[in-house]
């Protein structure tokens, strides 16, 4: 390598390495180290798995962890089921200007903060909200209905918030499937169902995988939606992390929780990639 090129390489490498090491790699290692500390006195610590043992022995923590994971998976699945027909419509049924307009419409809600979106659902779902009033007006309910502060409300919020991250990769992969290939499927005797199963869905797999990964991760790590839309009983794991850090000042346990959340999301992402034979580079990059 010529000297000039070497200098260029070093110059370009520096910001990347600083960013990744100082903001990503070292902080996470550090977080892991902190999670292995046990406070034995004022300012005195020793290395022990105590925080992880606390997690394993406290039913509330375990239950919340499992609940969060399962609900995040469910939210991912529902988002996929809702988004797929819409994405297919945008990519393969709509034409020209309609297609761009519909796609843009899908993006609009995500240019505003998640907080605003959640706030919208609160106005709709709460006891004095729009839907409750509508139901009473229509005679379907004889008193105000509280639809907020339960798991269903969380689910609605999560699905809504994640929709974009499913629609975009799905539309992108579906658009890359030539009409000709679909027509060939029918020409050779295929039906709606068989063309969908054998041609469209296999083709869309990369989009499905990357959409699911992102949606799952966002749902799992969501704090706002469960806090605002969920009730007293619907605790989310991120809320535990927040309370350990900010309310209880128990950083050691909070760090352990954070690490567990990271572990869970990495495992599921890795599993999904393994299952479908994709790599992170191809799916995300």
């Amino acid at each position: 390598m010529k000297a000039e090129a070497r200098i260029g390489l070093i110059l370009l490498l520096t910001p990347l390495l600083l960013w990744l090491s100082l903001l990503i790699v070292i902080p996470h290692i550090d977080m892991f180290l902190v999670s292995l500390r046990e406070r034995v006195g004022v300012g005195e610590y020793r290395i022990s798995p105590a925080n992880y043992l606390t997690f394993l022995t406290e039913p509330l923590y375990l239950r919340t962890f499992a609940r969060t994971a399962i609900m995040a998976m469910l939210a991912t699945l529902i988002t996929l089921l809702i988004a797929f027909p819409v994405s297919y419509y945008i990519a393969k049924m709509a034409r020209g200007r309609t297609r761009s307009a519909l796609f843009l419409l899908c993006l609009v809600p995500f240019w505003v903060s998640e907080l605003v979106r959640t706030f919208g659902w609160m106005i709709l779902l709460r006891e004095t909200g729009l839907i409750s009033t509508l139901l009473q007006w229509a005679g379907l309910a004889d008193q105000p209905v509280e639809m907020l502060y339960n798991d269903a409300a969380i689910m609605v919020g999560l699905v809504y918030t994640s929709m974009l991250f499913m629609v975009v990769p799905l539309v992108t992969t579906l658009e890359s499937l030539p009409d000709e290939v679909i027509e060939a499927g029918y020409d050779l005797g295929g039906t709606n169902v068989s063309v969908m199963r054998e041609i469209v869905i296999p083709h869309a797999t990369p989009g499905i995988v990357s959409g699911c990964i992102v949606v799952f991760m966002l749902s799992l790590g969501n704090y706002l939606t469960p806090t605002m839309l969920g009730g007293k009983d619907s605790l989310w794991f991120t809320e535990l992390i927040y309370s350990q850090f900010i309310v209880r000042f128990n950083w050691e346990l909070g760090a352990a929780f954070g690490f567990l959340l990271l572990l869970l999301s990495s495992l599921i992402v890795w599993g999904m990639l393994r299952l479908t034979g994709h790599t992170l580079e191809r799916t995300m990059g």
Partner: peptide
């Protein structure tokens, strides 16, 4: 007769072979 039931088949311009198979 819908296209999937017609006794004609087509070789498409870009062949439209199914890449997933």
């Amino acid at each position: 007769t819908p296209p999937n039931k017609r006794p004609v088949n087509m070789v498409f311009q870009h062949l439209a072979l199914f890449p997933m198979m």
